Each structure stands twice: as C-alpha cells, then as structure tokens.
Amino acid sequence: MKICKTAQAGAFESNDVLITVAPNEQGGVQVQLETKRVILKQFGKQIEQVVRDQVAKMGAEDVIIKVQDKGALNYTIRARVQTALERALV
C-alpha cells in the first residue's frame, strides 16, 4: 500500500486520538507519539505497537504516522489508523 497524500482521522478530544499519516520520503514506518507524560511512560510502547500492527496488517509502507493521544483505547487507535490510511490512498 503506497501512501499518496497526507490524511487524518479522529479528534483531539478526551478518550480519542488524532491520527495523521503522510508519505515518508526516507522510507520505512515512523511513529511519532504525543500524549501526556504519564500515559507515555505507562502505555507508550503499547500504543506504538498497536499502531505498527495495524499498519502492517494493512500493508502500508513508507509512512509517517503522528499519534496525538487523549486516552483512546486500542480498538479506537486501530480504527483511526485504518481510516487515515484509507483516506491517504485516494
């Protein structure tokens, strides 16, 4: 799956996550996670793994994924990543 343009999904509200995807000119999958320090320390690796798993499941390559988390659960993160990736294809 080749990402053609920048796209977003989600909202920057409580219990949600804003996902922004963009083509990565250097290649590979890059995850940029922004959240509260406490959440980053406790759940940062898990959030990043959920994002990377969804990207791999969809077969996306050469993408930068910016994750602005406000306490979203894993299923919400997966859905937002999927939607943003699908929007970036069109």
Rank of each mutant, 00 (worst) to 15 (best):
V21E: 01
L33Q: 06
R80H: 09
V17H: 07
E25G: 08
K41W: 03
A7S: 14
L89A: 12
I3C: 00
A72P: 01
D69N: 14
V21M: 10
T35G: 00
V51L: 01
T6H: 05
G71K: 10
V17W: 07
L85Q: 08
M58E: 12
I3A: 04
V55F: 00
N74L: 01
F43Q: 12
G28K: 00
S14E: 14
L85E: 02
G28T: 00
V50D: 03
Q42M: 11
R78C: 04
Q68L: 05
G28L: 02
L18R: 15
T83F: 03
E34L: 03
R52S: 12
V38K: 10
F43M: 14
V31Y: 04
I64M: 11
A7I: 11
T83W: 04
I47Q: 03
C4F: 11
V81F: 05
R80Y: 13
L73F: 14
V29H: 06
T20F: 08
A22Y: 09
I77W: 00
T6A: 15
M58K: 09
A79D: 13
D62H: 10
E48I: 08
I47V: 12
V17N: 06
L33N: 06
V63R: 04
K36H: 08
A88R: 02
C4A: 15
T35P: 01
L89S: 07
G10V: 09
A88C: 10
L73T: 07
G27R: 03
G27V: 04
N74T: 03
E48P: 03
Q46R: 12
R87T: 06
L33W: 05
A7G: 06
V31S: 05
G44I: 06
V67F: 03
K57S: 14
Q82W: 00
V21P: 04
D16Q: 13
R37I: 08
L33H: 05
E86K: 15
V29W: 04
K2V: 11
E34N: 10
T76V: 14
L33G: 04
D53W: 06
P23H: 07
N74K: 05
D69H: 10
V51A: 02
E86W: 10
E48F: 07
Q26E: 13
A60V: 08
V50W: 00
R52H: 10
A72D: 01
D16L: 06
A84E: 05
Q49S: 13
C4K: 15
E25Q: 12
V55D: 02
V67G: 09
A56K: 09
I65E: 11
D53F: 06
P23A: 12
N74P: 01
Q49E: 15
I19T: 15
R52F: 05
Q46E: 15
Q54E: 15
R52Q: 15
K57E: 15
E61K: 07
Q82S: 13
G44P: 07
M1I: 11
D53R: 08
G28Y: 00
V90L: 14
T35F: 04
Q82N: 10
L18P: 04
E61V: 07
Q68Y: 02
A88G: 08
I77C: 01
V63P: 01
T83A: 13
V29T: 13
R78H: 06
Q42F: 14
V51N: 04
V38Q: 11
K41F: 09
K57I: 05
N24R: 07
T35H: 03
L33R: 03
V31A: 04
Q49R: 14
